[in-house]
Computed example of a mutant assay.
Amino acid sequence: MSGASATGRRPRLNVGYGSWDLIWSFVHRVLVVNLGLAAANLPLLVALYVAHQPWRYPVFFGLLSLGIGPSLAAVFGYLRRADDDERAPVAELLRAYRRLFGRALLLWTPCVLLIAMATTDVFVLRDSAWGLALVPLLVVAVLVTGGSGVVAMACLAYDAPHTRRHPLLVAPYALIRRWPLGLMNLGLLAVTLVIVNQAPLLGLAVVPGCVLSVVWRNSCAMIESAGPAAVRADEAPRHGDRPGTPP
């Protein structure tokens, strides 16, 4: 028998203060992210709860989905701030939402429009003679557009020189350059949507914050890999410039 059994004492889980602090910091971060996402997308969540067949109202839900982009950018901005302060307050999320809302909406809108157009084409062409050739291309276009939109929101929060100038150009390049991470992001987000759809309260309380922390790390790695190429392209001589001529 062990010493604990011999003395009649139950074994205890001995976790150091630093480990507990790390655990509670992560829990705090997840709860803040989940709360922010739910509050920013409350109209969309209510509409999804009320409508049993949301795909029958594409325009209505397309308009509501425009709010997803700014909320993602705000979450990524908060997670970037949390890298320096593990227990960053909720006010940091609100500041990021207010600061990034306009640019995020401007970048997210064309992504939503392209996804809507490609999805409509898939629905129309699926049984036609051209469907066999065009539907796979359209599906790839939907995946690339959705993945690029997520990376573009991360670009706004990352706020590096090359992402600040051309986020919609950096995002697809970063996605294709590190496509395994892009597929992982899309897979995690798809699983999150399924879980939230099946168990809304439990899913919203736990899953999004954990998943978006991983998506944020993956997006940072993708953006960093695209940095040198973007900087070289931006520093390339412009048309009409002569070598050795100062800008």
Rank of each mutant, 00 (worst) to 15 (best):
M1G: 10
S2V: 03
A4G: 03
S5Y: 12
A6M: 11
T7D: 09
P11A: 03
P11G: 06
N14E: 14
G16K: 02
G18M: 10
W20M: 13
D21S: 14
D21P: 05
L22F: 15
S25H: 06
F26I: 14
V27I: 14
V27C: 13
V33S: 03
N34F: 02
N34S: 12
N41P: 08
P43K: 00
P43F: 00
V46A: 03
L48Y: 00
L48V: 02
Y49L: 11
V50H: 02
V50M: 02
A51W: 02
A51M: 09
P58H: 06
L66H: 03
A74R: 00
G77L: 04
G77I: 01
Y78H: 04
R80T: 08
A82W: 00
D84C: 11
D85A: 12
P89Y: 00
Y97E: 13
R103V: 11
L105F: 15
L105V: 10
L106M: 12
T109E: 01
P110S: 03
P110Y: 09
V112Y: 05
A116F: 03
A118Q: 05
V122D: 01
W130R: 05
L132M: 12
V135N: 03
L138Q: 09
V142I: 10
G146F: 06
G147S: 09
V150A: 08
V151P: 02
M153G: 11
P161L: 12
H162R: 05
R164V: 14
R165F: 14
L168N: 04
Y173S: 15
Y173G: 15
L175C: 14
P180C: 10
L181P: 02
G187W: 04
L188M: 11
A190R: 01
V194D: 02
I195G: 02
N197R: 12
L201K: 10
G203Y: 07
L204C: 09
V206T: 10
G209R: 00
C210A: 14
L212A: 06
V215G: 03
W216C: 06
S219K: 09
S219F: 06
C220N: 13
A221P: 01
M222Q: 13
M222N: 01
M222S: 07
M222F: 02
I223R: 00
A226C: 12
A226L: 08
A226I: 08
P228C: 11
A236Y: 07
G240Y: 06
D241T: 14
D241F: 14
P243Q: 14
T245R: 09
P247N: 10
